[in-house]
Every structure is written in structure tokens, then in C-alpha cells.
Amino acid sequence: MGLSGWDHLRAAFVALHVAVVVAGSIPAPPALDTKSLKKPEFARQLAAWEALAAQLGVGAAQFREGLVTVVKPLRQARALVTELGEPYARCCGVAQGWSMFGTLNRAPGRVEVWLEEGGRFRPLTIPGHPEATWRAATFGSERVRAMLNNYANFNQPEIYALLVDWIAREAARDFPEATRVRAQIVKIEPPEPSELARTGVVPTAEPVRVLYRNLDPSQ
């Protein structure tokens, strides 16, 4: 079959597309610098790999040196291709990035909302709580969950505060007699599987980032 100029052009486009996709997908490894090493989870994971390397007779310093040798050019090559391909990725939606549960969060949390009525707080909305089901469809939807997960990991505290303002406005409308809402982040402490099998209970820490809002039905 004779190949035309268009065929070559098409193949060149496909090759460029694949280059952008592959470069964008390659994990961007941490720089192994002081900033990265200060992160507790990163240090813990690195220690686990160093322990494994030690079992294979590779010292920690040698292991890190080898890692830097691999990581540095990889980061540079990836940065170059992704930078060149960025306009294409942005306009055509071919941005990549798939870090599904790469490192598990050992201190996940949940956002809880409590309502004060008659001087007592009762749970209003808590994930998985059988009775605290106010706006359960909304708070249980995936995009809201993603957002709440962000706040439960202590990211964007100022936006979390704005969400609590919104919750207060909505609660005031739905519960005109109520006086306050309390929003809080409760971290869970993953138990050993055997303990969970025995007790069925996932322990939680004391609430943090506790915010109160007075309810004003006129708002």
C-alpha cells in the first residue's frame, strides 16, 4: 500500500499525542530534597524502602544516591515533555495524572455537623451515621465527598470555614428553632484488622477544627 503525506502527518500526530500522554502519566517522583524528607509519610515510606534495600545488602546512603541518579533525569525529561505538550493537553483535555491510593492515608478524617436545639447538640450529618442524615444525598455525593476529604486533611481551612457558613444558612432555613451548628473534623485511627473483626468499631480521635455558627433564620 502506498503511503501518502497525510498518512505520515497522521502518524506524526499520533506519536506526539502518545508522547504527551506517556510523559504526563509517568509519576513525578519527589525531588528527594530536604523539603520532601521533612514530610513524615514520605520519610516513613523511604525508610521502608531503605530497610528492604538493606536486606539486599545496599546501604541507605548508596540507595539514596542510586535513587537520585534515576529520579533527577526522569524529573527533568518529564518536565520538558509535559511543558511542551501543556497547551495541547490543556485545550484538548489530554492531561494525565493517576495516583489512585498510591500512598494510603493513615489518618483519614470526616467532617461532622451537629445542631443545637433546646440547649443540646445532636448529630445532624455524619457519614455512615444511621440518624445523622440531613442532606445525606448532597453530603454523600462523590464531588462533595472529595471536597470534604480535602478539608478533613486540614487543607484549605479558610474554604472549610466558608462551607460551615453555608451549612449554617441552610440549617437555619430547615430548622428555624435551632440556635447553633457545630462543624468539626474527626480523625479516625485505623485499628488492626483483628481488633476490628473483634469489636466492629473504628476508633476516632477527639474532634479538631471545631467551628460554631449562630443560626439566623432571617438570613
Binding site: S25, I26, P27, Q45, W49, W98, S99, M100, G102
Partner: peptide
């Protein structure tokens, strides 16, 4: 690419 690199990113112990 999606599955392969997702696997590559799973470096947590």
C-alpha cells in the same frame, strides 16, 4: 497508560 502508571505510583509499603 492509566493502569500501568497507576500501578507505578503505588509505592506505599
Amino acid at each position: 497508560v492509566i493502569y500501568g502508571t497507576t500501578g507505578m505510583q503505588k509505592l506505599g509499603s
